[in-house]
Amino acid sequence: MKLLSGEIISNEKCGKGLYKIEVFSPYICRNANAGQFVNVKCSPDGILDPLLRRPFSIYNVEKEYNVFSILYLEKGKGTKFLSDLKKGSNLNFAGPLGSSISIGDRSKNFLLVGGGIGIAPLYFLARTLIQKGKNIFFAAGFKDNNFIEWSGELTRLGINYRIFTEDGSWGDEGLATDFVKENIKKYKNYKIYCCGPRDMLISMQDILAGKKISVTALLEERMACGVGVCRGCAVKIKDGNGSFVYKTVCKDGPAFDLMEVIFD
């Protein structure tokens, strides 16, 4: 991990409040793995609000161009600052942070379940799995059709996928988790990765309870340091003795065995 500054190659809108920023960084491209994130300074030098860095999953790495990208939603002051950054200016960030997802050779089939902006880290994971010759099915759920422009990138991966929207404006009407529930028998030999809102992850836990299917969740929490120092981004994880320990999303995670996560 390093504190870095990289030139912004593009920062394009691809939906309402949805942006993709591409940044030149040979270091990130050499060292980043699926599941990791960058911690971005989202205010100009010397400006103290917003104060803390903002963590973003690495969405894609294009080694041939030394460019990595972040897919983000404009939600508050930090992401507004980010969306205003122009091509050619520099991004101040630290990375790659967090633990890498380790992809064993044994598993052949992978089901990726993403909700909303939670599809971002799964996209990088999907690309990694493709390079390893794995079979992938991507179930992506959204509130509405705001990610429709983005979906071209998913199509270009050349993998099987299904889109679900809560309002039925794009893909199938319903939740990605309902699809998983109805088809779970088909995926009993798959390894599952999911990322999305807390309710989605709780549904996934319910669906997979007692199923003995390996499921990993990529978690999100508010962070201060991003490097495992402050213990601010704690999540409750079962410790195997009927109790729990607090682990950090930034260093122990962001990937955790979903069935070990305790959602209070």
Binding site: L51, L52, R222, C230, C233, V245, Y246, D264
Partner: peptide
């Protein structure tokens, strides 16, 4: 163990 999350607010 520390306190229950959330633990950070900006």
């Amino acid at each position: 163990a520390g306190n229950p999350p959330p633990r950070i607010w900006e």
